[in-house]
């Protein structure tokens, strides 16, 4: 039997500590893809993911726990959408502000039942300016309903 969906919409995901892209990590990531490091101090745009995911106040495991889902059962990133207002800069601190926006359940031909967790995270610089906004969906496979989720 599937557990009821918990009432977690609106839960804040505001980070406590700032996130900083350090030059070594930016260089390492760019090197794995054989792309040049930006000469104007910009981080590779993919650091929007690291900054928002690491900078929010919960790990993916803790997010899954809020949904009553065991991370060992394999959550999957379903989608990601980001809008940049400014480039992310190396060695600049940013803070994450965000919240859970939806938790829904639907049937999947592949997984049986799935819960879909949606959340929005914003990256804000020290002046309080929002530099990007990212929306994520996390797919939590529940199986056919007769196994543990």
């Amino acid at each position: 039997m599937l557990p009821d969906l918990p009432d977690i919409v609106g839960t804040t995901l505001d980070g406590v500590e700032p996130y900083v892209v350090n030059a070594a990590d930016n260089h390492a990531i760019c090197t794995t893809m054989d792309v040049p490091v930006d000469g104007q101090g910009g981080a590779h745009p993919i650091f929007y993911h690291m900054a928002t995911q690491s900078g929010m106040n919960r790990s993916i495991g803790e997010l899954c726990g809020l949904c009553g889902f065991n991370i060992a059962h394999g959550p999957m990133l379903g989608s990601s959408a980001v809008e940049f207002r400014e480039p992310i800069m190396v060695d600049v601190p940013y803070r994450v502000r965000g919240n859970i926006t939806a938790l829904n359940r639907k049937q999947s031909s592949r997984f049986g039942w799935i819960d879909i967790l949606q959340y929005e995270l914003k990256l804000v610089n020290e002046a309080g300016v929002e530099v990007l906004r990212a929306r994520y969906s996390l797919v939590l496979p529940r199986g056919r309903g007769d196994d543990e989720g």
Binding site: V35, H44, P45, G78, S80, A81, V82, F84
Partner: peptide
């Protein structure tokens, strides 16, 4: 996802990436 960003950067090296919205 980063590989897609790289393809855009290679095609438009002078551009600013404004948004990218994908399904995995």
């Amino acid at each position: 996802l980063a590989y897609l960003i790289n393809a855009l950067t290679a095609a438009f090296p002078e551009a600013f990436l404004e948004s990218i919205d994908v399904r995995f």
